[in-house]
Amino acid sequence: MTKFAFKIRDVEFKNRIFTASGTFGYGVEIPQLIDVNKLGALITKSITLNPRAGNPPNRIIETPSGLLNSIGLANIGVREFLDKILPQLSNLNTVIIVNIAGNSDEEYGKLIEMLNNEPVIKAFELNLSCPNVKEGGLSLGTNLKSVSEITRIARKLTQKPIIVKLTPNVTKISDFAIAAESEGADAVSLINTLVGMAIDVKTRKPKLSTITGGLSGPAIRPIALAKVFETVRAVKIPVIGIGGILSLNDALEFFLAGAKAVQIGTANFINPHSSVDIITELEKFCDDNCIKDFEEFIGSIDLSGNLAINN
């Protein structure tokens, strides 16, 4: 194992920089722009049981240092994913994590059953952002019971690592991490996007077709960092940090807060090479600072003198 390698369950990752779901397509779109084989892992966009056309335009709008989106989980559906995309992923030399999304625990179960026997797929990330059809349409991920149930069902169906992706649109995110951990999740990734909104004052119309959307990008980074810091102190399983990471410095903040790995999201839209750049710069940073064991750097935030910390 190299200095940056680590394991979740029995899956080894060569480094700690992943690309976030929904910001890197299916991983096969832009081979001209980035060498995917350098990534610690590639997380596909969310796959659902049936194909989804996505939401009507406008789906995206830029806000200060942020991107507000309402893509609506547009994807080709699990069958076409298996037939057309998976064969293309089989030659890649990185860990393939498939992100799955559903409207009910049954849907998550079916998705895992359909995907679990594929050796190319090394792990699952559960996107719990869909509305709960059974319970009035609130996002599954904002309901502790749903998070527990879906994790429990997933755990029964697969021996592959399960990463539960947590939404920040809750009062206390670490409660959700604890719920996922106690039902057998191998890791949690956070944060998903924050609910946001923008209005065109000339036309008085919302700028997104769905009125509200999910905010990502550097605007949410301090929030994400605080949520990661909180969650790291609440669970024993690895926490994967996500939220507006554009540069090595941004990634280092998450590692210092205790993230075992980070996901690069919105940055992929701006600089498709950013995740690979961060991997290279992180190696140099460790060489320059004589960091031999990266595991020791993780969580090494210096809290001496911060008397206000209760924990």
């Binding site: 929904g22 910001t23 890197f24 397509g25 779109e29 832009i30 722009l33 966009k45 056309a53 996505g54 939401n55 009507p56 335009p57 406008n58 789906r59 995206i60 709008i61 991107l67 989106n69 893509i71 547009a74 992929n268 839209f269 498709p272």
Partner: peptide, 22 residues
Amino acid sequence: MMACGTGICQGCAVKSKNSSKK
């Protein structure tokens, strides 16, 4: 409105008249 320009973000949707693709 566009973000990535390369098809990965799916942000720049246009309504299609083709029945197989919305």
